[in-house]
């Protein structure tokens, strides 16, 4: 069964769509969630929540790329869960690491600006991504959106790890400049 057929099932409100999604993208979901969450229970719960969200999103959404769509929803669901868990106890170090890295781009003080317009920020990030080279863009997205490790990204695109690291470093620096220019920090 291909993506188009599965999406069609969602549109038809056929619950088998979820089963088919799991068959094909179960590993993807699990991998994505496990990059962020620590325990199998949390991961399973995250996948369930993500699938529910997929179910609720289609329709009306028509994903351009179903895998990317699922990965993003899983990532966001996991991140929300992670934030929830983090408030209670320490959790995945990988995510903390990513937080630390991304903090290069902004002031870490949480009291600098407590309220942000998320949509505007996202738009700004879209614009920033447009300024990047293809390589930088994909590496950045894989790292900070899909939360792949350096080595995974290197393998994915047949890059050296050094290239990935250097590209990320530069992109973070550029993002910081950009966010500053745009008045976000």
């Amino acid at each position: 069964m291909n993506d188009k057929q599965i999406i069609q099932m969602y549109w038809q409100r056929n619950e088998n769509a979820i089963t088919e999604t799991l068959k094909i993208y179960g590993n993807l979901c699990k991998n994505t969630a496990s990059r962020i969450l620590s325990t199998p229970e949390d991961i399973d719960e995250c996948i369930n929540d993500a699938l529910l969200q997929v179910w609720n999103s289609i329709p009306p959404t028509k994903p351009l790329n179903f895998a990317a769509f699922i990965a993003t929803i899983t990532r966001n669901t996991a991140l929300n869960k992670y934030n929830h868990i983090k408030r209670q106890k320490r959790s995945s170090n990988q995510v903390q690491l990513i937080y630390d890295e991304i903090s290069d781009c902004i002031h870490t003080s949480e009291d600098i600006e407590s309220e942000v317009n998320a949509r505007m920020l996202t738009d700004a990030l879209d614009k920033f991504l447009d300024t990047l080279s293809d390589d930088a863009q994909t590496i950045f997205v894989q790292r900070y959106v899909l939360m792949l490790s350096i080595s995974e990204i290197a393998k994915l695109y047949n890059y050296t790890e050094s290239k990935v690291k250097v590209t990320l470093l530069r992109t973070r620096k550029n993002l910081r400049k950009y966010l500053k220019q745009e008045g976000w920090i």
């Binding site: 994903p63 351009l64 790329n65 895998a67 990317a68 769509f69 990965a71 993003t72 990532r75 966001n76 991140l79 934030n83 990513i98 937080y99 991304i102 903090s103 781009c105 902004i106 002031h107 870490t108 949480e110 600098i112 600006e113 407590s114 942000v116 998320a118 949509r119 920020l121 996202t122 990030l125 879209d126 991504l129 293809d134 863009q137 994909t138 997205v141 894989q142 900070y144 959106v145 899909l146 966010l179 976000w184 920090i185």
Partner: peptide, 23 residues
Amino acid sequence: MTKSDLLTALGDIDEKYICKAFE
């Protein structure tokens, strides 16, 4: 803006970028 805001916002970027990364 907090780190969390930034990471959250990154999760909402245009789908095309993620598709591109996948493709």
